[in-house]
Design a protein around this nucleic acid. Sequence first.
DNA 1: CGATTCTTTGAAAACAGTCAATCTGTGTGG
DNA 2: CCACACAGATTGACTGTTTTCAAAGAATCG
Lengths: 191, 191
Amino acid sequence: MFEIFERYIKQTNKISDEDLDILKGRCTEKKVRKGQYLLNEGEVWSLFCFITSGCFRVYRTDKEGIDHTFRFGIENWWVTEMISYNHRKPSDYNIEALTASTILVWTKKDWEEILSLSPAVKLFNDQLHGRAYEAAQRRIYSLISKSAAEKYFEFQEMYPKVFNKVPLHMVASYLGISRETLSRIRRENPK
Amino acid sequence: MFEIFERYIKQTNKISDEDLDILKGRCTEKKVRKGQYLLNEGEVWSLFCFITSGCFRVYRTDKEGIDHTFRFGIENWWVTEMISYNHRKPSDYNIEALTASTILVWTKKDWEEILSLSPAVKLFNDQLHGRAYEAAQRRIYSLISKSAAEKYFEFQEMYPKVFNKVPLHMVASYLGISRETLSRIRRENPK
DNA sequence: CGATTCTTTGAAAACAGTCAATCTGTGTGG
DNA sequence: CCACACAGATTGACTGTTTTCAAAGAATCG
């Protein structure tokens, strides 16, 4: 499975064979069954996980018991919860495998060690976080400026692979609308 | 004005006198009048700006001509637009001074040089971006899970200083609700 | 003071959420 | 293979929230 990661990282960054060895030497491969949780609310998240296959969702449950999807993850994405990771405090979020999946896992300790050993990986890591912030910025703009229907079509277009993998009621919760509203948007815009 | 920045950065990070000299030597102080723009839509943003006094807003105008406030900035905050900054491409955003303000300005070139010269500043910079991402994560959660009234009270409590400085219709546009709705929330919850 | 910006208000319309029920497809166990 | 359970998706009727539009009050600034 490491080859998938190798191909992924080489798409955007120059990484030496030594650096790849460092990365490979400290990660473990993990198979996750459908419905299994990588993180449960209340636990501290201290991993760096790269998805080589499958699908995850990061969500939070409010006081009324309603789920709100913070993000999805599919192959060639990372799945993390950075608030808990950064502050070593119990997370408000859950991370659930929506399908059987395989991931590469680095512990926080190992990952930080790698960052201190390899400037190239450190650069990659910085760019990764930069892109994550940019995605958050774009999503915030959509959430404050667009209607339910506009958000739906944007999501479908921006993340077609995710869209085709996850149940619609989770898309609704990602967009901040009810599943019924999403269903009606679909009815009024067939195909 | 540099003393304000010095006090700010020393609150959270150990910074040597040499590093402070590097920072000081490459920044310029700038006074901005009320209503003046640091960035206009279509321009490339290539600065790193620390606010020593005053108040800014970063917003975007949609096709219907409606403003959407991406964020505010007051003293001891940074004001940036990272998508344009990272990719050196024309920004979709505007940055406007809501009051007369003073800022410390580093060019992107200088800032990157500083980061390469000083590991301590690099660490500070990484932490800064980490906190920005965390704030974005929290905001996304509010936007997808909370009602207009809940978002309003949360904003008031979380950013009281900002709340007391900016017009209500900009708060509304930050929260993704209309100014009339915000006005009614206030009427129904006096004091 | 006059102009401008900001805030509030009322009435109507549009939009989205809730509740309860039904429909659909999938997979499991007998 | 069928019956059943279950999760997901849809529907209708209703309710509630939010927006829109138009207008009028406040507040602020030169």
